[in-house]
Amino acid sequence: MTVTVRDLSPDAPDDLEGFARVRRAALPFFLLTPESLAHDLTHMHPDAHYRPFVAVADGEVIGTAQVHLSHESPEPGQGNINVYVHPGHTRRGAGTLLVRAAEEHLAAHGATRLLAWVLDEPGNRAFAERHGYRASRSAHFLRLDLAHGTLPPLQDPPPGVELRTGSDFAADPRPLFELDAETTADEPSDVDTEFTDYEAWLKETWQHPLFSAELTTVALVDGRPAAFSAVRTDGGTRYGTVMTGTARAHRGRGLAKLAKNDSLHRARAAGYTEAITGNDTGNGPMIAINRWFGYEICATEVRHVRELG
């Protein structure tokens, strides 16, 4: 049975559905839908050179690759390759073909360093090592049973602090962009990130089809955003926090915990039954907060790096 690799077609529903199906099977801890794929294809910044690939056998999508440059990094040449093969179709060469296509694309656009997330399982790590990648930092996926778990009780904000929803910033989201940029810059990572393009942030984050402004909670101090918990949902029962953080001047006051607790309670009241999130293993404070909420580690992935040339 021949396996071929080609570009994902945004106009082919079977491609989008197949890509999402493979990702759900291989990485069930990450929110992704056909609609979010189509949005990324049409709205990702041109400098990212975003190019998703699919591996196909007998007309069926059995593997995927999301490939792009970290255009928001101050250090040029950082390429990203995330390859996943359906668990029922491994050891057929799809992964190798996807890696080869991804590396050629990134190298052609000036990548000098390639980074790939790999689930922390012996077979996956061995695959990465065979292709010249070395292990770097790691991160956890965490899960919380919203339907049956017990959340900490809601707390009243301290004096001078007010809780609002992301929807309250619909007319002018720029203050949330500025807070997101500051907190993202301080996240532990192999690649430094600087959000400087507000218009790109609007397209890729604020207007993303999975983003829920209604369930996003923002803590204001003296009327200015100081902490937030940003949310995406799959439109069904799954809820994910994709960034929770506090401005540097307000850290150590429990504001991120306050915001996330409010969001989780509202998500459960809205009928969401499962909460997922991810943390770098070096981010002890956020892991401690998530454990306080009742999250449990459900998987670990390891960043692998390959230097080119």
Results as ranks from 00 to 15, higher is better:
Leu154Pro: 14
Leu179Cys: 07
Ser167His: 12
Leu151Phe: 13
Ala219Arg: 06
Ala171Cys: 00
Gln155Ala: 15
Leu114Asn: 04
Ala147Glu: 13
Ala200Met: 03
Asp186Phe: 00
Ala108Leu: 08
His140Ala: 14
Asn124Tyr: 12
Gly235Arg: 10
Leu151Ala: 07
Gly235Thr: 11
Ala170Val: 05
Thr216Met: 13
Phe195Tyr: 15
Ala227Ile: 11
Phe127Asn: 09
Asp222Val: 04
Thr165Asn: 14
Pro122Tyr: 01
Leu210Asn: 12
Pro173His: 03
Glu121Asp: 13
Arg143Trp: 05
Phe127Ile: 06
Pro153Trp: 01
Leu114Arg: 01
Arg164Asp: 07
Pro159Ser: 06
Ala111Pro: 10
Asp120Lys: 04
Val218Arg: 11
Pro153Asn: 05
Ala108Asn: 08
Asp180Leu: 00
His109Ile: 00
Thr165Gly: 12
Leu114Tyr: 04
Ala171Asp: 14
His140Thr: 09
Thr184His: 01
Glu121Cys: 01
Asp156Met: 14
Asp190Glu: 14
Glu194Cys: 00
His208Glu: 08
Leu215Gly: 06
His140Pro: 01
Thr165Glu: 09
Leu151Tyr: 14
Phe211Lys: 13
Leu151Lys: 08
Asp180Cys: 03
Asp172Ser: 08
Gly123Cys: 06
Leu144Gly: 10
Asp222Gln: 06
Val218Asn: 10
Ser167Ala: 15
Asp186Thr: 00
Ser167Phe: 11
Leu176Val: 12
Arg137Phe: 08
His109Thr: 02
His208Lys: 05
Val221Asp: 04
Asp145Ile: 02
Glu182Phe: 04
Ser167Lys: 09
Ala135Gln: 13
Ala128Asn: 10
Ala128Leu: 11
Trp201Asp: 04
Ala171Val: 05
Leu176Lys: 07
Glu178Asn: 00
Pro173Glu: 03
Gly160Val: 01
Arg134Ser: 15
Ser136Pro: 08
Pro188Cys: 00
Ala227Thr: 11
Gly123Asn: 10
Leu215Lys: 05
Ala181Phe: 07
Glu204Thr: 15
Arg125Tyr: 08
Trp117Ser: 12
Leu176Cys: 11
Leu202Ile: 14
Gly110Asp: 08
His140Met: 07
Ala226Cys: 11
Asp197Trp: 04
Thr150Gly: 02
Leu142Ile: 09
Ala147Lys: 05
Leu179Met: 11
Pro188Trp: 00
Lys203Met: 09
Ala171Arg: 08
Leu179Ala: 07
Glu129Pro: 12
Asp180Arg: 02
Val231Thr: 13
Gly132Leu: 10
Glu204Ala: 11
Leu220Trp: 10
Asp180Ala: 03
Thr217His: 15
Arg137Gly: 08
Gly223Asp: 02
Leu202Met: 12
Gly149Thr: 03
Ala147Tyr: 02
Ala108Ser: 15
Ala185Cys: 00
Asp197Glu: 05
Asp222Arg: 02
Val221Trp: 07
Asp186Ala: 09
Leu163His: 06
Pro175Phe: 03
Ser189Tyr: 04
Glu204Leu: 10
Ser138Met: 11
Leu163Asp: 04
Gly123Ser: 08
Ala147Cys: 01
Asp120Thr: 09
Thr196Arg: 08
Asp190Met: 09
Ala128Asp: 12
Val161Ile: 12
Asp156Cys: 08
Ala226Val: 07
Ala185Glu: 05
Val221Gly: 07
Ala139Ile: 09
His140Leu: 13
Thr205Asp: 13
Ala171Lys: 04
